[in-house]
């Protein structure tokens, strides 16, 4: 269980999170709110990449995360396959190839991330996160730049590969995510 208790976080003089509390227990969560409200900050706090100014953050010590960052953070000079395998030691070549082909065109397997379109990169970042051996999956705006068909396909892919893990998605668009528990930041 992940618990954020009265968390506040500022950057320089701008307060991004103010006395925010939330509990992510099990199942899927949609972290919702307008742009710039602090969804990504909340994600980075959970991942331990930021420290809160105030409040309490309770996350089990041994909890392993998989994440799709808002900026993808892919190895631009490496192929889609290498991008998956570089961070997923336990995933076989075949499994990675199959997963890529489920969400991207077949010829993407050996295509360099830097040569892909924004939408393709986004899907590759989602594949990388979903294949990672973890206790929780965090997807920060995973549908940015995707058309409706790709978005639906990506949602199905996420559901298929979730395997009962805790899921936190940030998005300002709830379509297709009705079954997720909503936590609003405002």
């Amino acid at each position: 269980m992940i618990e954020l208790k009265n968390i506040s976080k500022s950057f320089e003089d701008k307060k991004v999170l103010d006395n925010f509390s939330a509990v992510f227990d099990e199942g899927g969560y949609l972290l919702k709110g307008p742009s710039g409200i602090g969804k990504t900050t909340c994600i980075l706090l959970i991942l331990g990449l930021l420290k809160p100014d105030e409040g309490e953050l309770n996350i089990p010590d041994n909890m392993r995360f998989a994440v799709c960052f808002q900026e993808n953070r892919l190895f631009e000079k490496e192929t889609a396959l290498t991008n998956i395998l570089a961070v997923n030691e336990n995933v076989s070549n075949e499994a990675a190839t199959q997963a890529i082909c489920e969400l991207l065109p077949e010829d993407s397997v050996n295509k360099k991330a830097g040569e892909m379109s924004g939408g393709m990169k986004r899907r590759l970042a989602v594949i990388r996160a979903m294949l990672h051996d973890s206790d929780a999956v965090i997807l920060d705006e995973p549908f940015t730049g995707l058309d409706d068909a790709s978005r639906d396909k990506t949602i199905s892919f996420i559901r298929k590969y979730l395997n009962g893990r805790l899921l936190i998605i940030t998005s300002h668009d709830e379509r297709g995510l009705d079954d997720l528990k909503v936590i609003s930041i405002d």
């Binding site: 990449l49 998989a66 994440v67 953070r73 997923n88």
Partner: peptide, 15 residues
Amino acid sequence: KMLDMAKVFQMKTSK
């Protein structure tokens, strides 16, 4: 940012 990503994914030092 890439180092943060590596930290989350617990990438091996060699990788």
